[in-house]
Amino acid sequence: MALTTYVEAIKQGIWEEMESDERVFVLGEDVGIYGGAFKVTAGMLEKFGELRVIDTPISESAIVGAAIGAALMGMRPVAEMQFADFISCAFDQITNFAAKCRYRWGAGVPIVVRGPSGGGVHGGPFHSQNPEMYFVHTPGLKVVCPSTAYDAKGLIKAAIRDPDPVIYFEHKFLYRRIKEELPTEDYIVPIGKAAIRRKGTDISVITYGAMVYTALDAAKELEKEGIELEVLDLRSLLPFDKEAVLDSVKRTNKVILLHEDTEIGGFAGELAAVISEEAFEYLDGPIRRITAPNTPVPYSPPLEEFFLPKVADVMRVARELNAY
């Protein structure tokens, strides 16, 4: 069977939901005629027509605002941000309108806002950001960050079917680099469930997005030294799978928290708090974070290389922890 890329998997997920549910539609800049800057919506205009594949003006706030309005009337909009960086332009609609409707007056806002995030492609400070934490900090939203093609498809479908607003960050570095065989039958990946990517006994590496592969590569190397990493892929940040996190930590007793987002206010801080509150007794070493430094994402290759967490960083910290 053919292998499906991560980007193709997102497209398949949206496509299938549009086929099975006529309330589902997509809107965003250049999503129609052009098929999206990264071709996530390629062919949809021809298949589903102009009413369901909407090329919008460059108006992120209006794209999300209009999605909210349609969702309140029973539609299931999937709004694209051409780059996740531009989600800042829709911040108010997402964090105030979409996130607080249900809590205030019981009205659900089943929208999906999706877009390419992450670095590694020399995009510079405005085409490489990982903006997840702005939204993880907002009760009422859900936030997901798939790392595999299987999850990319399963999570976009779950997001579309979800009764609440879901922010879906797809890592652009993975778009065409990651592929796998996908089931032919319909499936979803439930929001809020982590996945163990590699079983291990010595140290848990808890991560998400493109960093899953950094962790797996490090695990392969460390295996040769007799250090067995367990790699836990969170897949969802809000809500996150606390049980899976605690279960893994309780088995390995050592933990590395790894993400591409910057350090201060990054998801690792939240995980560290939960682990020390609920699994302190099980820890045989300090909770360690590996994250990007607290700077914008720089453009020049040597700077960006320095910025992004690397396999070598995971190996170094794992060796240090292993010595405890």
């Binding site: 453009y299 040597p302 700077l303």
Partner: peptide, 14 residues
Amino acid sequence: MARKTGATRGRDGN
């Protein structure tokens, strides 16, 4: 070309 001598010293591009 992302050099140190560029206007943003490599922090940003184009």
